[in-house]
Design a protein around this nucleic acid. Structure first.
Lengths: 150, 150
DNA sequence: AATGAAATTGAGTTTGTTTTCCATTACAGA
DNA sequence: TCTGTAATGGAAAACAAACTCAATTTCATT
């Protein structure tokens, strides 16, 4: 799944900032990079506790901003009252197409978005850092179900 | 600012659903449509209380889903621990370019997004309902400041 | 205008997420 | 190994958002 180089990137960042590399931080990062699923704090916490690791939620909450700053992790969207994340390192930048009914998520990329970004940078004089495109609708299955319901 | 037709749209919706038109709902909607600024629940609440209106936050929280369903209001983005909204009626669909430093927001439209939407609908078989594009970076002023700081 | 069923209200309470606090522990450079 | 400081877990606090409930208001029907 991962060659561990995200850990090296994180260690370098900690060193540069004078912060510390701890067992808990390593465990959390390994867990995040162990799968390519999206995650949220609570399910990550439960998963780790079930595996017998003794991390606290506070440590996860404290780590996430650091992972975002190193661009190892991104916020994906806010739903069900809390934020959802994904790890970024090792993935091409991509956007999300989501079914509002069954919550399935498709990932996609489109070169036109880079063009839009570039035009915006010129037009408004911005230094563009990032974009998030969240397209929402009904997947083929739910679309059918939904039409029948109406 | 507004000719009040958003109120009529809302009344029609309430009638259709068997819900009631109340003074509080009217006041809240008027307040939302009084300016074209983005808003959040807390600042809207404070603004109304300062004007001497006796609405409760609960009423605002209860109203927002109805306004979203009638497409009078949209969620814009989640920031600072809570959702931010904008009224939609009377505005073309648009996306946001935001400065992460000073929080200034530019609105823009781009025909390429409709194309992307259309292609996604075909490629994944989705019925696309909406998209949100949130482009983030540094505005011209903050860009300069930021570079000096480094 | 009066009625009455049902929706809505404000205030307070509860839930759930995220942040902060604090005493203790662990890291990393000298 | 010592030492200063960051990070830890667990609890408590802060916060947004949702729910509860008795009192009130709406509105179609008289």
């Amino acid at each position: 799944m991962s060659d561990g180089s995200e850990l090296q990137i994180f260690r370098d960042y900690l060193k540069k900032r004078g912060l510390r590399y701890t067992r808990e931080r390593e465990q959390i990062i390994r867990e995040i990079f162990a799968t390519h699923e999206h995650f949220d704090v609570d399910s990550l916490y439960l998963k780790m506790r079930q595996k017998g690791m003794n991390v606290s939620k506070a440590s996860i909450y404290r780590l996430i901003p650091l992972l975002i700053e190193t661009e190892l992790v991104r916020e994906v969207f806010f739903e069900d009252g809390h934020m959802h994340y994904e790890h970024v390192y090792g993935h091409e930048h991509h956007c999300h197409l989501r079914c509002l009914e069954c919550r399935k998520i498709e990932e996609f990329t489109d070169p036109r978005l880079a063009e839009v970004e570039k035009d915006l940078a010129e037009r408004f004089g911005y230094h563009v850092l990032d974009h998030r495109l969240d397209v929402r609708g009904l997947c083929p299955e739910c679309r059918t179900k939904y039409l029948y319901k109406k």
